[in-house]
């Protein structure tokens, strides 16, 4: 996706309106993850975004064996959605699809490198690409899940054992789309339960 839009940008770069560089940086709050849940029939799609600091405790690119192992362990844990977000047994949910990955600003930059050159902004200047440890870029874990549930009406709550698995996480902002429209919740470390009864 990113590559696509960058390609699109590079083709448009010829027109004067787009010649100026864009300077944008994403923000994220340490301790706060984001979980999007969409209900559609018997399917439940979930998308988790969590800062690297919450999951592995650091946000620099993993260089040492220890750090790399940490990231790999975390990705393994993230690949087990029902172990992180426990749904009632009665709902009979099973995992259909899982994707967990680590997104980092470094990758973005690498893509940018191959995309085009006129995008050279302040991030690149004087930056040593070999030394990732000193890179201040944020890393974010990203996971997508698709569940199928036998009895979706029994899915009245989700217990966030996520907070036990990742003790550094403080809060998850949850957005839910269901037949009732879109709403938002906040699930905290101290009260790791999402009550979905209002959606039924």
């Amino acid at each position: 996706m990113k590559l696509l839009s960058l390609l699109a940008l590079s083709t448009l770069a010829a027109s004067p309106a787009f010649a100026q560089e864009t300077r944008q940086l994403d923000s994220h709050e340490h301790g706060v993850g984001q979980l999007d849940i969409a209900f559609d029939g018997s399917l439940v799609a979930m998308e988790l975004h969590a800062p690297g600091a919450d999951i592995v405790g650091f946000e620099y690119g993993a260089e040492s064996d220890e750090d790399i192992a940490k990231v790999e362990d975390a990705l393994l844990v993230l690949a087990q959605p029902l172990g992180l977000f426990v749904v009632p047994e009665a709902a009979q949910c099973s995992v259909v699809e899982v994707r967990a990955e680590l997104e980092s600003e470094d990758e973005h930059k690498d893509h940018e490198e191959e995309g085009h050159d006129d995008h050279g902004d302040e991030e690149h200047e004087g930056e040593d690409h070999d030394d990732h440890a000193e890179d201040v870029g944020h890393t974010e874990f990203h996971a997508e899940y698709l569940l199928e549930c036998g009895d979706i009406t029994a899915l009245t709550e989700i217990s966030f054992t996520y907070f036990t698995a990742f003790p550094d996480a403080v809060e998850v902002e949850v957005q839910v789309i269901s037949d009732q429209g879109a709403t938002a919740f906040e699930v905290e470390h101290d009260a790791p339960m999402l009550d979905l009864t209002s959606l039924n």
Partner: peptide, 8 residues
């Protein structure tokens, strides 16, 4: 198109 695509 589909509710599952909204967040994407």
């Amino acid at each position: 198109k589909g509710r599952l695509q909204v967040f994407g």
